[in-house]
Simulated scan of single mutants.
Amino acid sequence: MSARVLVLGGGGFLGYHAVTEALAAGHEVSVFSRSGRAPVEGVEVVTGDREGDLSALRGREWDAVFDTYNDRADGAPAIRATARLLSGSVGAYGYVSGMSVYAPMGPAVPDETGPVRARGVEPDTDRLQLRSLAKLAGEAAVTEEFDGVALFPRVGIMVGPRSTRMSYWPVRFASALAGETPRRVVLPGDPERPVQYSDARDIAAWCWRMLVDGRGGTYNTVGPCRPDPLRQVLLACLEAAGGGPDDVELVTARDEDALRAQLASVDEEERPLWYPEDQIPQVAIDSAKAAAAGLVFRSARETAADILRWAEEAGERPLLDRFVGQERLILERLAGRG
């Protein structure tokens, strides 16, 4: 069913995929942005400012809106103003929240009923505290101001074309197969530990189906809704690069404490997935509710192949040149232990 949809911010990573997935579903797409530029052809651009001038939205009607507003600590008033303005003129409102809202002292694998963070409980020095409170404030703003269906997808690590951190792996393997970098590659941590990640395109497509169908609620949308071991994901990235298990040597670095110490000067956002990530306190996230509502994720190989194609077309070597030296130091340390 074709619908008129609005994306609030279509230039970022998830916003871009929200636009392209809406177009792929046959929807008529408008994008609200300060730049006045369309992220892709075939969309209407509505120019304005989330934190100032919303007048271009006034008097317009859409069937659904997808809000990718950031997690700034002072961002709730902008979300509240937009939700209030669009109430009554939009059928369903989707606001993108995050898995970090769950209290770190709660269940190791929380579902949507799990306890969430609260001001004064976790310290502000916790890297996720302020941004998580901002996401919760955004959820509250939409709930309180928007008179209609509200959907809150709580996302986790998002990957796909135009991303960076997972891009390391298919690009790294492709460069190894081409003889540009060593064929000895570090596998960080227990190779059998399950890892979670979500292709942003799958999240965006599912959100549009939910919104256009008038279905709301709070859902964990952390993939892949199947037990993907780390080794299996990395081998899928290798296959996407045109190689097989015998073409590279995966050297397992099981001691995550040692990895963490060696990478202390490297920000987590500058490390490839799935090196030690202290900002994720939960063991995993339970997304069974979203899966029951139709959320499915494509294979790791398909995601990796699309990432590699994008990286090659864009001339990107995300993280590769910066991190391959760190990988060499890790291998040297492991050899010294042997």
Rank of each mutant, 00 (worst) to 15 (best):
S2F: 03
F13R: 06
F13K: 02
L14K: 09
G15V: 03
H17N: 06
V19T: 09
T20N: 08
T20V: 14
S33I: 12
R34K: 12
A38D: 09
E41K: 10
V43M: 01
D49C: 10
E51I: 03
D53F: 12
L57M: 14
R58G: 11
E61S: 15
E61R: 14
F66G: 05
F66V: 13
R72K: 06
D74Y: 05
G75M: 05
R84C: 09
L85T: 06
L86N: 05
S87G: 09
G88P: 04
G91N: 06
Y95T: 10
S100H: 03
A103Y: 01
A103H: 15
P104C: 02
V109C: 05
D111I: 08
D111A: 08
E112Q: 00
E112D: 07
E112S: 00
V116F: 00
A118L: 15
G120D: 09
E122I: 13
D126K: 08
D126Q: 11
Q129L: 15
Q129P: 04
L133P: 06
L133D: 03
E139G: 13
E139T: 12
E144K: 11
V149K: 06
L151A: 11
V155T: 12
I157V: 10
M158K: 01
V159K: 00
G160Y: 08
P161D: 00
R165Y: 00
R165K: 05
W169N: 01
P170R: 02
V171Y: 00
A176V: 04
L177N: 00
V185Q: 02
L187D: 04
L187E: 01
D190C: 09
V195I: 14
Y197S: 07
S198D: 02
S198Q: 02
S198F: 03
D199P: 01
A205L: 12
W206Y: 14
M210E: 15
M210P: 04
L211Q: 05
V212N: 02
D213Y: 04
R215E: 14
R215S: 10
Y219T: 08
T221Q: 09
V222P: 05
G223P: 10
P229W: 07
Q232V: 13
V233Q: 01
V233S: 06
E239M: 11
A240Q: 08
A240K: 02
D246L: 04
L250N: 11
A253K: 02
D257L: 03
A261Q: 13
A264T: 09
S265W: 00
D267M: 11
I280C: 02
P281F: 09
P281T: 06
Q282A: 06
I285A: 01
L295P: 12
V296K: 08
A300I: 04
E302D: 15
A305Q: 14
R309E: 15
E313A: 15
A314I: 03
L320M: 06
L320I: 01
R322W: 00
F323A: 03
G325W: 02
G325H: 05
E327D: 12
R328D: 12
I330L: 12
I330F: 07
L331H: 10
A335R: 15
R337G: 15
G338D: 13
